[in-house]
Protein backbone atom coordinates (compact mmCIF):
# COMPACT_ATOMS: atom_id res chain seq x y z
CA UNK A 1 0.00 0.00 0.00
CA UNK A 2 1.59 3.32 -1.05
CA UNK A 3 2.38 5.58 1.89
CA UNK A 4 1.79 9.27 1.48
CA UNK A 5 2.89 12.03 3.84
CA UNK A 6 0.45 14.95 3.79
CA UNK A 7 2.01 18.16 5.07
CA UNK A 8 -0.85 20.58 5.68
CA UNK A 9 -1.62 23.07 8.45
CA UNK A 10 -5.31 23.56 7.74
CA UNK A 11 -7.24 21.00 9.74
CA UNK A 12 -10.17 20.77 7.39
CA UNK A 13 -7.90 20.34 4.38
CA UNK A 14 -6.01 17.61 6.19
CA UNK A 15 -9.17 15.84 7.26
CA UNK A 16 -10.72 16.00 3.85
CA UNK A 17 -7.74 15.03 1.72
CA UNK A 18 -6.52 12.30 4.04
CA UNK A 19 -9.97 10.70 4.08
CA UNK A 20 -10.26 10.86 0.32
CA UNK A 21 -6.84 9.34 -0.24
CA UNK A 22 -7.49 6.64 2.35
CA UNK A 23 -10.64 5.74 0.46
CA UNK A 24 -8.49 5.35 -2.63
CA UNK A 25 -6.29 2.83 -0.85
CA UNK A 26 -3.39 4.99 0.27
CA UNK A 27 -1.88 4.96 3.72
CA UNK A 28 -1.79 8.60 4.79
CA UNK A 29 0.30 10.19 7.52
CA UNK A 30 0.02 13.80 8.63
CA UNK A 31 2.46 16.58 9.41
CA UNK A 32 1.07 19.95 10.49
CA UNK A 33 3.95 22.26 9.64
CA UNK A 34 7.07 22.42 7.50
CA UNK A 35 9.46 21.44 10.26
CA UNK A 36 7.44 18.36 11.19
CA UNK A 37 7.10 17.57 7.49
CA UNK A 38 10.87 17.53 7.01
CA UNK A 39 11.38 15.41 10.13
CA UNK A 40 8.80 12.82 9.16
CA UNK A 41 9.80 12.66 5.50
CA UNK A 42 13.40 12.04 6.59
CA UNK A 43 12.39 8.78 8.31
CA UNK A 44 12.26 7.18 4.87
CA UNK A 45 8.85 5.61 5.51
CA UNK A 46 7.03 7.40 2.73
CA UNK A 47 6.63 6.92 -0.97
CA UNK A 48 5.45 10.44 -1.73
CA UNK A 49 4.91 13.82 -0.07
CA UNK A 50 1.97 16.15 -0.65
CA UNK A 51 3.31 19.50 0.47
CA UNK A 52 1.16 22.52 1.14
CA UNK A 53 3.20 25.62 0.43
CA UNK A 54 1.73 28.02 3.03
CA UNK A 55 2.89 26.45 6.27
CA UNK A 56 3.84 27.77 9.68
CA UNK A 57 7.34 27.28 11.17
CA UNK A 58 9.02 26.73 7.83
CA UNK A 59 7.01 27.01 4.64
CA UNK A 60 6.62 24.39 1.93
CA UNK A 61 9.21 25.98 -0.33
CA UNK A 62 11.88 25.83 2.34
CA UNK A 63 10.82 22.35 3.52
CA UNK A 64 11.18 21.12 -0.06
CA UNK A 65 14.63 22.66 -0.42
CA UNK A 66 15.72 21.00 2.84
CA UNK A 67 14.46 17.61 1.68
CA UNK A 68 16.27 18.01 -1.63
CA UNK A 69 19.48 18.92 0.15
CA UNK A 70 19.38 15.69 2.17
CA UNK A 71 20.79 12.64 0.27
CA UNK A 72 18.19 10.37 1.93
CA UNK A 73 15.25 12.34 0.59
CA UNK A 74 16.67 14.00 -2.51
CA UNK A 75 14.68 11.74 -4.80
CA UNK A 76 11.51 11.43 -2.66
CA UNK A 77 8.59 12.51 -4.92
CA UNK A 78 7.03 15.77 -3.74
CA UNK A 79 3.84 17.33 -5.08
CA UNK A 80 3.33 20.97 -4.17
CA UNK A 81 -0.18 22.08 -3.27
CA UNK A 82 -1.26 25.69 -3.12
CA UNK A 83 -4.45 27.68 -3.06
CA UNK A 84 -2.66 30.83 -4.14
CA UNK A 85 -2.56 29.69 -7.75
CA UNK A 86 -0.42 32.56 -8.83
CA UNK A 87 1.15 32.91 -12.25
CA UNK A 88 4.54 31.27 -12.24
CA UNK A 89 3.86 29.21 -9.08
CA UNK A 90 4.19 25.98 -10.98
CA UNK A 91 7.60 26.92 -12.35
CA UNK A 92 8.72 28.09 -8.96
CA UNK A 93 7.59 24.85 -7.35
CA UNK A 94 9.53 22.81 -9.86
CA UNK A 95 12.54 25.05 -9.46
CA UNK A 96 12.41 24.59 -5.68
CA UNK A 97 12.65 20.86 -6.24
CA UNK A 98 9.03 19.66 -6.39
CA UNK A 99 8.25 16.95 -8.90
CA UNK A 100 4.82 18.29 -9.65
CA UNK A 101 2.37 20.95 -8.65
CA UNK A 102 -1.38 21.12 -8.08
CA UNK A 103 -3.81 23.79 -6.98
CA UNK A 104 -6.63 23.90 -4.50
CA UNK A 105 -9.47 23.32 -4.80
CA UNK A 106 -8.22 19.81 -5.40
CA UNK A 107 -9.51 17.96 -8.39
CA UNK A 108 -9.10 14.53 -7.00
CA UNK A 109 -8.84 12.76 -10.35
CA UNK A 110 -6.14 15.11 -11.53
CA UNK A 111 -4.22 14.84 -8.28
CA UNK A 112 -4.50 11.04 -8.26
CA UNK A 113 -3.07 10.81 -11.77
CA UNK A 114 -0.12 12.96 -10.70
CA UNK A 115 0.41 10.77 -7.63
CA UNK A 116 0.26 7.57 -9.70
CA UNK A 117 2.74 8.98 -12.17
CA UNK A 118 5.27 9.71 -9.46
CA UNK A 119 4.95 6.61 -7.32
CA UNK A 120 7.71 4.07 -7.78
CA UNK A 121 6.57 0.88 -9.49
CA UNK A 122 5.28 -1.76 -7.14
CA UNK A 123 4.75 0.50 -4.16
Amino acid sequence: MPRILLVEDNEMNRDMLSRRLTRRGFEVAIAVDGREGVEQASTGEYDLVLMDMSLPEIDGWEATRQLRANPDTESLPIIALTAHAMAGDREKALEAGCDDYDTKPIELKRLLSKIEALLPDGS
Binding site: L17, A83, K104, I106
Partner: peptide, 18 residues
Protein backbone atom coordinates in the same frame (compact mmCIF):
# COMPACT_ATOMS: atom_id res chain seq x y z
CA UNK B 1 -7.27 36.82 -1.09
CA UNK B 2 -6.92 34.02 -3.59
CA UNK B 3 -5.85 31.68 -0.80
CA UNK B 4 -8.68 32.81 1.40
CA UNK B 5 -11.31 32.21 -1.25
CA UNK B 6 -10.00 29.03 -2.81
CA UNK B 7 -9.49 27.24 0.50
CA UNK B 8 -13.22 27.10 1.42
CA UNK B 9 -14.06 26.04 -2.12
CA UNK B 10 -11.57 23.24 -1.72
CA UNK B 11 -13.46 22.20 1.42
CA UNK B 12 -16.90 22.42 -0.19
CA UNK B 13 -15.89 20.40 -3.24
CA UNK B 14 -13.83 17.89 -1.28
CA UNK B 15 -16.42 17.07 1.34
CA UNK B 16 -19.24 17.13 -1.20
CA UNK B 17 -17.45 14.67 -3.47
CA UNK B 18 -16.98 12.35 -0.51
Amino acid sequence: LRHELRTPINHIVGFAEM
